[in-house]
């Protein structure tokens, strides 16, 4: 049986996104730190999401849990609603999945 590699995000993706935001040169070793830090972030995130859903008596993480989390992280505030963050940071095809859009024929998607 083939051994599955540990699931992790591609270094190239982390590198690309981080360089895009940082807007200055980054030493190779600094990228390694960013990657490590991302792993820690996902571990922390998993723990938090589990705590939130258990607290709500659910086994499934809902969109609302993420919104509460982002509020706690200070990312979502009264002046910065979640849908604005979605519009700013996610490409259109994902935005359409997350934000209900009124379309002609009086239908709401999703």
């Amino acid at each position: 049986q083939r051994k599955m590699s540990e699931p992790e995000l591609a270094s190239s993706l982390i590198k690309k996104v981080f360089s895009h935001y940082v807007k200055m040169p980054v030493a190779r070793d600094a990228f390694r730190i960013v990657k490590k830090c991302s792993e820690r972030y996902f571990r922390q995130l998993s723990n938090d999401l589990e705590a939130y859903t258990q607290h709500a008596g659910r086994k499934t993480v809902e969109v609302a849990d993420l919104e509460v989390l982002m509020r706690r992280q200070g990312l979502v505030t009264d002046k910065m609603p979640l849908h604005v963050l979605i519009e700013r940071h996610l490409p259109l095809e994902y935005r359409k999945l997350l934000i209900p859009v009124a379309v002609s024929g009086n239908k709401i998607i999703p």
């Binding site: 972030y41 999401l49 993480v61």
Partner: peptide, 23 residues
């Protein structure tokens, strides 16, 4: 990290968003 935890539809996209904001 959490084998029992299930993600509702499109929650992964919000996790992606959260990760982008983290970076």
């Amino acid at each position: 990290h959490k084998p029992q935890l299930r993600l509702a539809a499109n929650v992964d996209l919000l996790i992606h968003l959260n990760f982008l904001l983290f970076l």
